[in-house]
C-alpha cells in the first residue's frame, strides 16, 4: 500500500511541486495544509505516515506545528522543508523531533531520499 503523505506549505507552488514529485514516485498525498494550524488539524484527522513541513507560514509556523504534532503522536514522521536553512533552525527542528531537514530550493532526489529513509526505518 502506498505511503500516505501530508504536505504543509503556505505556497500553492510548493504544494503542487511536492505533490507532483511524490505522486510520480508512488506515494499518496492524502492531504495539503496551508499553515501549521491546518497541518495539526489534518494530522489528527488523516493520521498520515509522513508529514512535510514548511517553517515560515502564517497562523502557526512549522516549528510550533511540529511540536504540536509530536505532542499528539511522539512517533510522527515530520520532514522539514523550508527556505530557512540556518544552523540554529536545523538544530531546533531536530531537537523538537523532526526526522529530516530539507532546504529549499531542493532537487526532487533530496525529497525522495528523505522519504525513502523514513519508509525503510
Amino acid at each position: 500500500m502506498a505511503k500516505r503523505i501530508l504536505i504543509t506549505d503556505d505556497a500553492l507552488f510548493m504544494r503542487v511541486t511536492l505533490k507532483n514529485i511524490l505522486t510520480q514516485n508512488g506515494y499518496e498525498v492524502c492531504g495539503e495544509a496551508a499553515n501549521g494550524e491546518e497541518s495539526v488539524k489534518l494530522y489528527q484527522e488523516l493520521k498520515p505516515d509522513i508529514v512535510t513541513m514548511d517553517i515560515t507560514m502564517p497562523e502557526m509556523d512549522g516549528i510550533t506545528a511540529l511540536k504540536e504534532i509530536k505532542k499528539i503522536d511522539p512517533d510522527a514522521n515530520v520532514v522539514m522543508c523550508t527556505a530557512m536553512g540556518q544552523k540554529n533552525m536545523v538544530v531546533e527542528a531536530i531537537q523538537s523531533g523532526a526526522k529530516d531537514f530539507i532546504v529549499k530550493p531542493f532537487q526532487p532526489e533530496r525529497v525522495l531520499e528523505a522519504i525513502k529513509k523514513l519508509v525503510a526505518a
Binding site: M14, T56, A83, M84, G85, Q86, K104
Partner: peptide, 15 residues
C-alpha cells in the same frame, strides 16, 4: 504563488 515562493527562497538564502 510561484513568484512569492521565489522571493521566500531568496529571503531564506539571504538570511
Amino acid at each position: 504563488s510561484t513568484l512569492a515562493e521565489l522571493g521566500n527562497m531568496i529571503s531564506g538564502s539571504v538570511s
